[in-house]
Simulated assay, not measured.
Amino acid sequence: MRHRAVVLALVLVVAAVAPTAGLAAAQTEDGTSTAQESCTFPYSATDATGANVTLEEDPERIVTLNPSAAQTMWEIGAREEVVGVSQYASYLEGADEKANVSGANGPSVEKVLDADPDLVLVPNSTYGLAKDRVEQIRDQGIPVYVFGTGTSLEFVANKTETIGRLTGNCEAGQRTADDIRESVRLMQEALADEEKPVGLNVFYGYTSGNNTFIGDVMTTAGLRNGAAEAGVSGFAQLNDETVVQMDPAWIVAPEGSPIPSNEAYNSTTAIQKGNVVRVDENNLQQPAPRSVDAAETIMQAVHPEAYEEYQSMKQQANQTETTAATETADTTAQTTATATTEETGTGAPGFGVVASVVALLGASLLARRR
């Protein structure tokens, strides 16, 4: 009976003390829980098609039908959850280890289903071109989320948050989105007093006008979007007469894309001065986190002094954030240690009473053996 009584005492004390220790570790300095209650499942959201998408559990197998969604998963540190990608995501490190779910003129329904996904992420462009195929996937009971059309870097940040939430990577999604917004803010601050020359985006006979994320990348980097000012909306072709009238001081083009070599383009200030900015197409052409890198590339070429100021501001912000995080961690650790010392009467964080009872139990059992 004495043995059972001591064991019961041990169980009761562990039950009383262990939750307290766990709670202290899971609280911030202001006493709020760090547990992501808003990142729980089941979770429902309405996508760009108006469809209600419900995820009963945290999805572990993700198929991305566009490279921007895949890039986002990579950037939030969730690439291991991706089991299928489109052929255009092959530039991502490790993408060759994933199933290629592309087919002729769009996604392959069969390949997507073979990947056995818990969630399929779909771009607006793919849905517009292959709606029937996407609906076939959805008809199999697989959650399918379709995104809207990217129009800005803020859209990219919001999309990053959404992907993080859908895939159960809320903290990483929020952190990456905040980094995008902070980079944009710092660029705007560094460029506040700079004159903004006219820029023209050119890619394979098209340009980016109003309501395009590429146009927003350019203006964020310190250019005026000449195509937008000429009344171009979305992605469209541009006639030579408009190019001459616009006379862009800078041309922005993805690497590998040819610049028209005709009288109209050759007459522009951009061509005559050699002001052509080549940008990694995977950064420039995709509404995903690396589009900030595209803006930085443009800014460095067009406004080198402001770019240096931006980098300095960014470094300072990172140092401040690191210092604040360190101080918070130290304060939290000190508060936790003090609280547990007061509760247990020992310097051991939350285990003083347990240790005492364990010692008592050991002595009792030893006495019984003797």
Rank of each mutant, 00 (worst) to 15 (best):
I137N: 05
A264K: 01
L186Q: 09
D293G: 07
N275I: 06
T320D: 13
N210T: 06
S364R: 00
C170D: 00
T332N: 15
E241Q: 12
V11M: 15
T335F: 04
A99Q: 13
S90I: 05
R224H: 14
L191S: 11
V6E: 10
R370Q: 02
M1L: 02
G106Y: 03
L121R: 02
R79W: 04
Y127S: 14
I180W: 02
A24W: 10
L121G: 01
T323C: 08
E60D: 08
T162D: 03
Y307M: 04
A192G: 04
M299S: 07
G256N: 08
S183M: 01
T323L: 15
A99W: 05
T72G: 03
N282V: 03
E57C: 01
T167M: 06
P123V: 00
G226S: 09
L65G: 12
S68I: 03
V146T: 14
L153G: 11
N100E: 03
A333V: 03
T242Q: 09
D178W: 09
Y265C: 01
E296P: 14
L238A: 07
A25E: 13
A25D: 12
A192I: 03
G84F: 12
N266F: 00
L12M: 15
P107S: 04
E321G: 12
Q315K: 14
D118M: 00
E305I: 03
G168K: 05
Q272I: 00
V252C: 03
F235A: 12
E37Q: 06
V122L: 09
A294K: 07
A190T: 02
A69P: 02
D139W: 08
Q315S: 10
A264I: 01
Y310H: 04
N318L: 06
V83E: 01
V83T: 14
T151P: 01
V244N: 09
Y265M: 13
V17K: 09
N318S: 05
A24Y: 02
A333S: 14
A24L: 11
D116K: 09
F213L: 08
V144A: 05
E189G: 00
D247N: 15
G168S: 03
L360D: 04
E56F: 06
I137G: 05
S312F: 09
Y204A: 12
L223W: 05
Q87M: 04
P42E: 10
K131W: 04
G226D: 04
A249V: 00
R4D: 11
D116Q: 07
A18W: 12
A35E: 04
E321R: 13
Y88K: 10
E241L: 07
G234H: 13
A348R: 04
Q316D: 07
L186S: 02
V302W: 02
I271Y: 00
A270E: 01
L223Q: 10
D247E: 08
T220D: 09
V122K: 11
M1G: 11
T54L: 11
D30M: 10
G31L: 14
K314T: 13
N282S: 07
T323S: 10
T332W: 08
G106L: 08
Y43Q: 06
A221S: 12
E154G: 07
E195A: 14
D280F: 04
A89R: 08
V63C: 12
V232F: 10
N239A: 15
D116V: 06
S208G: 13
L366K: 07
T34E: 11
P304T: 07
D179S: 07
G103F: 08
A21I: 09
N105F: 06
V243N: 12
T212V: 05
M1R: 09
A249F: 00
